[in-house]
Simulated assay, not measured.
Amino acid sequence: MQYSFSKRTMVQTSATAEISALAQQKKKNGETVYDLGIGEPVIAVDQRIISAVTDAMKQGRTGYPPAAGYASLRESVSSWHNRIAGSSFSAAESLITPGGKMALYMLLQALLGPGDEIVVCSPYWVSYPTMAALAGGQVREVRTSGEDGWKVVPEQLEAAISERTRAVVFNNGANPTGALYNSKELYALIRKVHDRGIVFISDEVYSGLVYDGSTFSSAASFPEFSETVVIVQSFSKHFAMTGLRVGMVFADQQIIRHLTALQSQTTSGAASISQAAAEAALKDADEISEHVRSTIEKRRNHLYLELNRLFKAELTRPAAGLYAFVPASTFAAKYGSDTGLAMRMIDQARTAVVPGSAFGAPGYIRISFGIPEPEISAGLEAIHQALS
């Protein structure tokens, strides 16, 4: 049977998911594959979180949760976020979602109509443009460069805003570049957006993965912008709970009520046992998140030592995130396209990476340092041998 699908849902698979699927297929075929494309911290889930999940199941906590999330968890996440971010959200200004990705999807569904626009900084996370398109909207890109630390300045942001702009989607601790904005830089950007009466969606899921003694500045730390700023957070990167799918939105109650209704008609919310896991994580939040952060920082340092050694490079380590965003020319002087180079790496070196084109930045390769050091070394060595 030939099926007919709606035009608005004719989207491509996420580039990161596609690369991951290729890697998994090779593993299924018995090949050894080094997954440097993976977008998660590959760390065992803390035993206290595992115990909370099994306890919840034994106690029968397996029914439908409240659409906005359990009241106890909403209280806990608000307190946690206020402590780490300098915000002042109440439980009523929080929403528990099945992952940070769903939080962003619902926000754009709620805010955009046909022809409306969002502004994003390029390189951007692969799903922002598709999410906007699924809501009937379009994307205006503000291009950044490695020479400027992959950072946007207020004048660039202001110039990109049009009469059809409904939101700026901003990723601090950016995927794929690791760009980290300080409080002064962040304030200046939000000020421009606030003055235009536009929503500033701050994707802060990498806020727990900040290195070299740096601190993370949250967009929610400025009380004067409380009606402008919406925060998206996630348990995935903070607590290495990616598959449990628990995200958060912090925003004005009007937005939370609207998203709660939308969630009640779609996903029904995050799974009950996943919310039990989240509550357990928050009881020992500092200890668990610091273990994840310090482990990933060691892997980042190892990746850059190996990159610079094998490819005779002088690459600078990112201040945050999970990724090295490396010029494709580092690996091959004549590489054709970054997409072609990435395919050569998976085919010839059995090492998965993601081409920069997926992030709106051709000529780069994104390499994850989420996996253990021995696998990082083996993957980079395989690339070096295959391309030399």
Results as ranks from 00 to 15, higher is better:
M106L: 13
L259Y: 02
R83E: 15
A382L: 14
R140A: 00
I365D: 03
V11P: 09
K28I: 14
S162H: 07
A342V: 09
N82T: 12
T130W: 06
I256D: 08
Q138W: 06
K101M: 11
Q253V: 09
P176R: 10
G379V: 02
E204H: 10
Q12P: 00
S217R: 10
P223D: 01
R344L: 07
F225S: 04
I371P: 00
V249M: 08
V199Q: 10
I346G: 05
P362V: 04
E75D: 15
N182P: 15
N82E: 13
Q24D: 15
Q275N: 05
M57F: 10
S51G: 11
Y181D: 09
F235I: 05
E141Y: 14
I383Q: 11
A67V: 05
T351W: 05
V326R: 07
I376W: 13
E373H: 03
G213F: 04
P66S: 05
V205D: 13
V249F: 11
P129D: 00
A324G: 07
A278G: 12
L108C: 05
A71H: 09
E147C: 03
R366V: 01
R299F: 01
A167C: 05
H384D: 12
Y211I: 08
T215P: 00
H81V: 03
S329W: 00
V354Y: 03
L186F: 12
A352M: 02
A92P: 12
F250C: 05
E204G: 01
S357C: 00
A56R: 06
A320I: 03
N82Q: 08
Y34H: 15
S272K: 00
V205F: 13
A281F: 13
S217F: 05
P65S: 04
